[in-house]
C-alpha cells in the first residue's frame, strides 16, 4: 500500500518529439504526503523532471497542476484527497502551452491579468496619512484580494480554453471586481467601459469550474455576476 503508482506527463522539447506519460513507483512509507512531496520524491529518482514550486504552503501559487483530473495546488493537496485506486495521474494545467513536463507557459494568463489594470487608480490627491475606509467597505474586498494567481481557475474554464486571448478569465475578472468594488478606486467608469464587449466578461457561461477548483475557496463566478450587474446599472 505504501508504493504509490504515479503517472506523470513528460515532455522535453529538446529530446521528445511528442509528450508521453511516464510511470513512477513512489514509496510513501504509508504517509499521507502532499502531492508536492511526491513530486520531490520522483525528482530524486529522475532529476530531469521539471515542475515549479516555491512556498510549499499554498500562498505563492507556483505549483498549480492537474491531479487525477482536477486542478489544484500540489503543496496543499494531500494524497488522501485525490488518490483513486492507489494511482495518481499528474498533468500540467490544461489549456496553456507546455514548456517542459509540468511547466506551462503562463504568458496568456498574465496578459489577461494585466489587461484589467490590476492596480488602484485614484485621481484625487493622496492625504498625508492613509485614505480612510470603513471596516464594512474593506470587507467587500474579502474573497477577492486573496487570489494567488495560480491559474487553477482559468485553466479549468472552457471559455478560457477557447478564447484565451479575448476572455479575461475568472482570475483576471476576480481581480477586476476587486478594484471595481474598492471604495478607494475612482476609475470605475473606465474599467467598466473596457469590459462590455462580447468576450472580456460576457464569454463566461456560468460553468463554475473556477469555483470548484479554487484552492483558496474564492468565487470568481460571483464576482463576474457582480461585474455584469455594475455594467447593467451603468448602461441602462
Amino acid at each position: 500500500m505504501s508504493n504509490l503508482q504515479v503517472s506523470v506527463y513528460r515532455y522535453n522539447p529538446e529530446t521528445d518529439s511528442a509528450p508521453y506519460m511516464q510511470e513512477f513507483q513512489v514509496d510513501t512509507k504509508g504517509r499521507d504526503l502532499m502531492v508536492l512531496d511526491v513530486l520531490h520524491l520522483m525528482k530524486e529518482q529522475d532529476s530531469a523532471l521539471a515542475f515549479r514550486r516555491s512556498c510549499r504552503e499554498g500562498v505563492c501559487g507556483s505549483d498549480g497542476m492537474n491531479m487525477n483530473g482536477k486542478n489544484g495546488l500540489a503543496c496543499i493537496t494531500p494524497l488522501s484527497e485525490v488518490i483513486k485506486d492507489n494511482k495518481l495521474v499528474l498533468r500540467p494545467l490544461p489549456g496553456l502551452p507546455v514548456i517542459r513536463d509540468m511547466v506551462v507557459d503562463m504568458g496568456l494568463f498574465y496578459k489577461q491579468y494585466e489587461r484589467i489594470q490590476p492596480y488602484l487608480q485614484n485621481d484625487t490627491p493622496a492625504p498625508a496619512i492613509e485614505r480612510l475606509q470603513s471596516p464594512e467597505d474593506r470587507e467587500k474586498l474579502d474573497g477577492l484580494y486573496e487570489c494567488i494567481l495560480c491559474a487553477c481557475c482559468s485553466t479549468a474554464c472552457p471559455s478560457f480554453w477557447w478564447n484565451p486571448e479575448k476572455f479575461v478569465g475568472p482570475a483576471g475578472l476576480l481581480q477586476s471586481y476587486r478594484f471595481l468594488v474598492d471604495t478607494r478606486d475612482t476609475a470605475t467608469q473606465e474599467r467598466l467601459s473596457e469590459l462590455e464587449d462580447p468576450f472580456s466578461v460576457f464569454r463566461c457561461r456560468g460553468i463554475m469550474n473556477c469555483v470548484a477548483v479554487c484552492p483558496k475557496g474564492l468565487n470568481p463566478t460571483r464576482a463576474i455576476g457582480k461585474i455584469r450587474e455594475m455594467l447593467l446599472a451603468e448602461a441602462t
Partner: peptide, 23 residues
C-alpha cells in the same frame, strides 16, 4: 516608516481597518 506605509496604502494595499477607518 509611516511615509512608506502610507504610500503602500495609497497604492491600494487592502489593510484591515478600525471602525474609524484607519489602518
Amino acid at each position: 516608516g509611516p511615509k512608506a506605509v502610507f504610500e503602500l496604502e495609497h497604492m491600494g494595499l487592502p489593510f484591515s481597518r478600525f471602525d474609524n477607518g484607519r489602518i
